[in-house]
Simulated assay, not measured.
Amino acid sequence: MSGRPARQFDRETRLRLRRVCLGLLSYLMFLVPMSIAVHAGSSTMGWSGVAVFTGLAVSINGVALAAIASGWSKRFADPSLLVPQLVAAMLLALGMIHFFEGEARSVLLLLFVAVFFFGLFGLDTRRYLLLTIGTAVGYAGLSTWELASAGASQDAWLMEALRFSALVVVTIWMSFIGGYFASIRRRVATQRKELEAANARLRELSIRDELTGLYNRRHLTERLEQESERSRRYGQGFSVALIDIDHFKAINDTHGHAVGDEVLVQFAAILRLQARFVDHVGQAPERTLGRFGGEEFMIILPGTPLAGARVCLERMRAAVARTPFETSAGPLVATFSAGLAEQREDEPSQALLQRADEALYRAKQAGRDRLES
């Protein structure tokens, strides 16, 4: 019997879960010095206290793990729940340190340092300093209450002041260092996003025709292969149209290539506008319209049989024929011829394209300004 498939987490969730596990590992590592202190008689918490500390640590991290793994934490501004975990760790450290005295207390103040290191995952300087203030106030309040209750000597007060000052100095410096690392992390993240955006722009430029802004031959060829593969896999046919502007060479020879470029740009704009009214073609993710080369254009019509493709192309042909091209040489009228082909079962994309090209040739031979299939 097959088991239930394991849940797949996204990259950010996996990272947050690993951080929580790292925090739990930090707690458990402190069981070693705590156990030594208890064994040496430097702590009043006893072994039952160690067990309580362990249970609380596991519970805190267990709640964080459950909240992150279930996606519940994503409703908050900080889905990693870093600040609540740090606050819980600080309170647990203060509660535990209360049961230690002498050198053991000084050593276990490193618990706070460990918590501050954990803050490197997401705290900026301001939040670090707030954490420092909270730690200082908490420890000062705990120490004052303990010393006053015990009627401690001046030496005991001085020793606690020494611990307090050392704790404040270390946590303040860690706040600035942690904030510095946070700023580096933000800059790296910003640069990564900028690089990804630049790569996306370069990718887009590499598949765009510079003159018309439509997709170029490279992208159309890739898109045709993708559509052919999808058709073979899911049995959904499609059609391809090759379009060629009639007598375009005469426009270049009579008015110059600059005017020819103006005609190409406006011709592409008409096709793009008409494509918006065509199912599938007008959807940006489909990317089915482009300049195939020179005055030749291609349209891929996913899920469209030959009859439907003919209706689409006739509408485009009529729109081009009735629209004058405003150029620097004055208004010009142009038409186009098109060859249509519908994919056959298991037909290679190049064979399909060849049939569309042959149909285009027949349209030219039959007098132009027409469609052939």
Rank of each mutant, 00 (worst) to 15 (best):
P5D: 03
P5S: 07
P5V: 03
P5N: 06
A6M: 02
A6Q: 06
A6I: 07
R7D: 05
R7M: 06
Q8S: 07
Q8N: 09
Q8V: 14
D10V: 10
D10Q: 08
R11L: 14
R11Q: 08
R11M: 10
R11W: 08
E12Y: 10
E12Q: 15
E12K: 15
E12D: 15
T13Y: 05
T13D: 02
R16C: 11
L17W: 09
L17D: 11
R18L: 14
R19I: 11
V20I: 14
V20Y: 06
C21S: 15
L22R: 09
L22F: 08
G23S: 14
G23H: 13
L24R: 01
L24C: 07
L25N: 02
L25E: 08
S26Y: 10
L28A: 14
M29V: 15
L31Q: 05
L31T: 04
V32C: 00
P33I: 00
P33M: 01
P33E: 00
S35D: 03
I36F: 07
I36M: 09
I36Y: 04
A37H: 11
V38N: 05
H39D: 13
H39Y: 14
S43T: 00
S43E: 03
S43N: 03
T44R: 15
T44K: 01
M45H: 06
M45S: 13
M45K: 04
M45F: 11
G46W: 00
G46C: 01
W47H: 07
G49A: 10
G49T: 05
V50N: 08
V50Y: 00
V50H: 06
V52K: 03
V52Q: 10
F53V: 11
F53W: 13
F53S: 04
F53G: 01
G55L: 07
L56Q: 02
L56Y: 11
L56M: 12
A57C: 12
A57Y: 10
A57D: 06
V58S: 08
S59D: 05
I60C: 06
N61Q: 11
V63M: 09
V63D: 03
L65P: 01
L65Y: 13
L65T: 07
A66D: 11
A66H: 12
I68H: 10
I68P: 03
A69S: 14
S70V: 04
S70I: 07
G71K: 04
G71S: 10
W72Y: 12
W72G: 02
K74N: 09
R75H: 08
R75V: 12
F76I: 02
F76P: 03
F76A: 13
A77F: 06
A77P: 05
D78T: 09
P79A: 09
V83G: 00
Q85Y: 05
Q85C: 12
Q85I: 07
Q85A: 14
L86G: 04
L86Q: 11
A88L: 13
